[in-house]
Amino acid sequence: MSDNESSAGREIDEIIAAAGGWKGETLARLRRAVLSADPDIVEEIKWRKPSKPEGVATWVCDGNVCLADVLKKAVRLTFPKGAQLDDPDRLFNARLDGTTVRAIDLVEGATVDEDKLRLLVRDAIAENRRS
């Protein structure tokens, strides 16, 4: 693991801690599932700006795979190439109208099947490798 990877991992730990409660727990579960999908996935922090100085937790493997945002009433896992992915289990429930992006919003009490999420992440990696 490079210093940049370990630094990003620590920063994502901080994002999870700052979210706290059910949002932090949800983000931690999503993170574990994403990381377990492929050994080549790397964590990065992207898109820092004054309104979001902590940046955005992003998982990368041959391109951006997915990114996590803590919203007011949900934790969102966004797939930049989600529209190109098969989603037979209908995990995507947000940003469905766009031509590229799809997302999974989890509200308090909601869960996602981690095995199905891992399959979706693997499909996103395969799409990155095709592009």
Rank of each mutant, 00 (worst) to 15 (best):
I16E: 13
A37V: 09
W22T: 02
A8S: 13
A37Q: 09
A33T: 01
S6W: 01
W59E: 11
G24I: 00
K72P: 09
R122V: 00
P53K: 12
A83Q: 07
L67Q: 12
D113H: 02
E127A: 15
E14D: 14
C66T: 03
I16P: 10
K46D: 13
A124I: 06
G24W: 03
I16K: 08
I41S: 06
G63A: 09
L35W: 05
S6Q: 14
R10Y: 10
E43K: 04
P80L: 01
A57V: 06
P39S: 14
T58H: 05
A8W: 01
V42S: 14
S131I: 11
D123I: 00
P53C: 12
I12K: 04
R122G: 08
L106W: 05
N93F: 07
T99L: 09
R90Q: 13
K49M: 13
I41F: 06
E43Q: 15
V121I: 08
S2A: 10
T58A: 14
L120D: 11
E5A: 14
D69K: 10
R95F: 00
R129K: 15
P50D: 10
G63D: 10
P53G: 11
G9H: 13
D113E: 10
D87I: 01
D97R: 07
D62A: 15
L30R: 04
S131T: 14
T99V: 04
K116T: 07
L30H: 01
R129D: 13
E127H: 09
L71D: 11
L96H: 04
G63S: 08
R130S: 15
T26A: 06
V42A: 14
V56N: 00
N93Y: 01
A28M: 05
K52R: 14
L35C: 07
K52Q: 13
E114A: 15
V70I: 15
E43G: 10
R129A: 13
I45W: 11
R90V: 04
G24E: 06
A8G: 02
D89R: 08
R32W: 00
R118N: 07
S2M: 06
A94P: 02
W22F: 09
D113G: 04
D105Y: 05
G63M: 07
R32V: 12
L119Y: 09
A18Q: 12
V42M: 12
D123G: 13
G109L: 09
A74W: 04
E5W: 03
V112E: 02
S6F: 06
I41T: 02
A83F: 06
P88T: 04
I16D: 11
E127D: 13
W22Q: 03
I12G: 08
V101D: 05
D105V: 00
S6T: 15
I45T: 09
P88K: 00
N93A: 02
A83K: 06
K73G: 09
D89M: 08
N64C: 09
R130W: 05
G20A: 01
G109V: 04
D105N: 11
G24N: 06
G98Q: 10
A74F: 01
I125M: 07
L106I: 05
E5C: 00
W22S: 07
